[in-house]
Write a protein that binds this DNA or RNA. Structure first.
Lengths: 342, 342
DNA sequence: TTGTAGGCGTTATCAT
DNA sequence: ATGATAACGCCTACAA
């Protein structure tokens, strides 16, 4: 099973079919062709087992039909986006190339360098602060870049985001409605706009309700399970621990739940919990977790549409699309019991 | 921000640096170059913002440095594999292209056709029965294909698998050790070797223990949450429902748990549960779910190594690598209570 | 070590 | 609608 000597080319097809190379090329690209020729070409292709070489076509036409996506990790959110994008793009004859940087700045830079070598037709990026400069370079070179999840403020580029601030406000308002006032937040790394916005929404809600905002109730969980776990430890060891908790992604929630389980705390009796992102397992937990769910489907569709329209007209001014999250009430939040120390 | 007129090429660099094109090419490929030339080339590259065009290089050298991966969906398992592979491949200057078929035969075929156009250097495939013929064609064309997750029996190709049969045997033995005899299985679609093997391991264990194997306790959940849910419904509505349950992937487990939650059944009091695949949330459920965990890291490493060695020597005979799963005991299984109807 | 020239498989531009 | 032919950007003999 040795690599076959050479794959048949369009030249072989032309010769076999007794037509010109350009006729074959046109046939392959769907340009109308005289019927007799078309049939002979089809036979030749079939016999030779010819498959057009996408790379040669790409080189000539300066369109690789490859789209990249760059994410820190493939967690449930990013892989859901990835799966849908891959499917959608394939339907348009494009291919999705995946890059993961694991949050490492050096790797991010390497990847951008790598990418500019690749001549992708477009790129989706989950925005990360260290990406600002390099990305700018990519864009200037002419690669359409579309950001999602986080925006790089001030960067003149397309983006699809959720209204993190408003969603967080709603989550915290829900807790306030249940009479909680000692509400803590475990937020992500503040170099991400989504972390900043979610924190801002949390503060908005407290301020609007006249509840004092204090750093005692704000902890950075760096988006990671481990960070969520440690944040819990610190939050709950205070003299006046929170009675309610807002965790701004699902991975930190995993960590927080691990801590809760370890200490035998009861949710929602001891602590009301609400978190950002919904995953399949959350409705099945005891208690089922109340969440802010991101509209993954809509995000993906918007990303795809935005890409297509930019591919169609590169001179379009950058557009921002903002989508709303939905608050899904389940069993992890409850009214503050009246006898709780206020 | 219009697409720049033209990207600088190796020719521009050569002109600017005052050296020959081939000198630049050699420099780019790490061939020793006279120092003075090297410096001038570096300056020219810097000034022009030159980036070598990977596609032109690929076409010339007949190596695209692109590796594909084809999976039905990006669930926790496949996306974990994907993430690690993408990282590992990037370290060797390669790129990972993702294809998802959602289990649709027609789409699978389209993708294989699509792929043979792409001139990938290699391809990882989560084996699926309908892929047999088309894949064979790809392999014969010279694309190294490495299967994982499911094997296509009789296909002469590399593969990395886990010992599904043995793992399942251990899971069921664990239940038998706890005195269960009415042990049910929810298995995946039997056109997948992993489903067949897991079912076989289940039967092995029962037979070895002298427990009768009955189709009353075997249900097909088609790998899906929904399938798990309905399988539960059927299994538990029997006159002698099982006292223990083995679910052969995590998605069907999700469905089974949904049914359990809905009916207010208690695990492990009413039903012991063990399942294939571990996910972040399982240790946090109440009860924490006992699982067979797949060695994702080892699987990925093996896939990568197998690819590299095949790239190095295409004439190598196909190899199969089989890895063991680990049984992680948590709280979802317990000894059958003596008063339970036997 | 360096330069020259031909070719990889396609598309695009011309006439025809 | 078709055919001949010049690119596309890079690599690689081969000769210097």
């Amino acid at each position: 099973m040795v690599r076959s000597a050479r794959q048949p080319t369009i030249v072989d097809v032309a010769r076999d079919a007794g037509v010109a190379i350009s006729t074959v090329s046109r046939y392959l690209n769907g340009v109308p062709t005289r019927r007799a020729n078309r049939e002979r070409i089809e036979i030749a292709i079939e016999q030779l087992g010819f498959r057009r070489n996408a790379m040669a076509a790409a080189m000539k036409s300066d369109r690789s039909h490859m789209i990249g996506i760059m994410a820190p990790v493939l967690d449930e959110f990013h892989s859901a986006v990835l799966e849908r994008l891959a499917t959608r793009l394939r339907q348009t004859g494009r291919v999705l190339v995946t890059y993961c940087h694991g949050g490492d700045t050096k790797v991010m830079h390497e990847i951008v360098d790598f990418i500019s070598t690749q001549r992708l037709d477009g790129l989706f990026i989950a925005g990360e602060a260290p990406l600002r400069d390099r990305t700018d370079d990519l864009i200037r070179r002419g690669t359409p870049v579309i950001f999602y999840n986080n925006e790089l403020r001030g960067l003149w580029a397309d983006r699809v985001l959720v209204d993190n601030r408003n969603a967080s406000r709603r989550a915290v308002n829900h807790l306030l409605d249940l009479d909680h006032t000692r509400i803590a937040i475990i937020h992500g790394s503040l170099d991400a706009s989504s972390a900043v916005d979610r924190l801002a929404g949390y503060r908005d809600a407290l301020e609007a309700a006249g509840v004092p905002v204090t750093s005692d109730y704000e902890r950075d969980g760096r988006w990671l399970p481990d960070g969520g776990y440690h944040a819990m430890e610190q939050l709950m060891s205070q003299s006046r621990p929170p009675t309610a908790l807002f965790v701004t992604n699902y991975r930190m929630t995993i960590g927080a739940l691990a801590w809760i389980k370890e200490r035998g705390l009861s949710v929602p009796d001891d602590l009301s919990l609400i978190c950002f992102d919904d995953i399949e397992a959350f409705p099945l937990m005891r208690p089922a977790i109340t969440v802010l769910s991101q509209p993954v489907e809509a995000i993906t569709n918007s990303l795809a549409e935005m890409l297509f329209s930019r591919l169609g007209d590169p001179s379009l001014p950058p557009r921002a699309m903002t989508l709303e999250c939905s608050l899904i009430l389940r069993d992890s939040t409850q009214k503050l019991s009246p006898d709780a120390e206020r």
